[in-house]
Design a protein around this nucleic acid. Sequence first.
RNA 1: GGCAGGUUGCCCGAGCGGCCAAUGGGAACGGACUGUAAAUCCGUCGGUGUAUACCUUCGAAGGUUCGAAUCCUUCACCUGCCA
Length: 423
Amino acid sequence: MSIDPTLLDDLEWRGLIAHSTDLDALREALTEGSVRFYVGFDPTAPSLHMGNLVQIVTARRLQDAGHTPYALVGGATGMIGDPRDSGERTLNTLDTVKDWVERVRRQIEPFLSFEGDNAATMVNNYDWTASLSTIDFLRDIGKHFPVNRMLARDVVKSRLEAGISYTEFSYVLLQSMDFLNLYRDHGVTLQFGGSDQWGNLTGGVELIRRADGGKAHAFATPLVTKSDGTKYGKTEGGALWLDPEMMSPYAFYQFWLNVEDEKVGELLRIFSFQSRAEIEEIEAQHAEKPFLRVGQRALAEQVTTLVHGAEETAQAIAAAEALFGGGDLTGLSTATLGAALREAGSTTVDGDEPLPSVVDLLVLSGLAKSKGDARRTVSEGGAYLNNARVEDPDQVPGPDDLIGGSWLVLRRGKKNFAGVEVR
RNA sequence: GGCAGGUUGCCCGAGCGGCCAAUGGGAACGGACUGUAAAUCCGUCGGUGUAUACCUUCGAAGGUUCGAAUCCUUCACCUGCCA
């Protein structure tokens, strides 16, 4: 595998480097040969999310450019918990962490190549942390961490008032130790992570210098936020999960399709594997005629393909076209409509029973969280049956409403669809 | 261990015996305008076929009272000061 010398320029252009240690030194290292680098993922949930995806695509870019990935799953650090502003974490049980470690590992693997000269390696920091004695830890690692410096970190400072346990306070030592171990055992000299990880990243670089007199590098990717600075991922139902069980490919596709205009370019640069020229072309088209949503379409298609594959993406697109297409749903074939609705989310109702009212259907389909919510939605004019606004909350769909003899299309607001299959 | 303060709905935060399903802000949701965008404006935001009603909710469990998120007791957790 040959080394791509333009890698760092590309990363910078994509805005993927928010902070870094000596950039010139890193540039030199990245052009000299295949750099062994690592990026860690803590199992804090059963699935990775959009924030992790930034790291994943960045790792892939580095591997594509000839460098050698070590993907770390935090079996140990996941049991401790990285301090965050919102307060002390609740510790998860060992079984939970073990389960999540496996899930996270399986989620990462498809994004990297495990073949060739620069094949990726999966590691788990539990392997070198679990058996470590407290005495060794305090002597060999703890000695290199001045508490006054640790206290100065922003996360820690922000937590001093509300409280922070020794457990979370010590987190940086564990992550730094990971870097040191990978440096010693595998020659890993670069770590990157999200910008909230910056303190942990530099902790490792410094530990390698203090303990071994070694030279290592680190950079942080930016935190992806909405244009008003708040976090993404708080869409309906929570974070933007990569696991199709937790977020359907349709919902995933819809998220990207609905990205704000101002963010399209930034997100394309971060997540798309298209070249600079191609992305700039899309941005130009988008700037000229934003209402065509060329940027969003490209972004949604590419990211969904990356995460869920071409087939799921094609179905998500087909579903979107069917549901948002013309408005006349009756013109669609049952097969097309059924596929679209299953993609968007659907429930089944027994055709031998009398059909439930629209209000009940809204609750059954999950579009409303209670009957009151459903009634409210109807009275606000936000409920639709087969693309026609529902005026009467007690309306009961009749046989004539069944598209293709078996489907009802419920909608809440402009873009929340759910199917009801009657059989 | 002692003293003081705190624990309220998705989040932040008022309320400190009845007028409290609980002020306000944010998030979220719906409508209008659009382009399945943003901004803006309007509305909604515990549950119940809608009710001067009932049920669940103000850290947990008891108690006082005609009546408690509000008072008392115990417990748990958090913060500060003192030991």
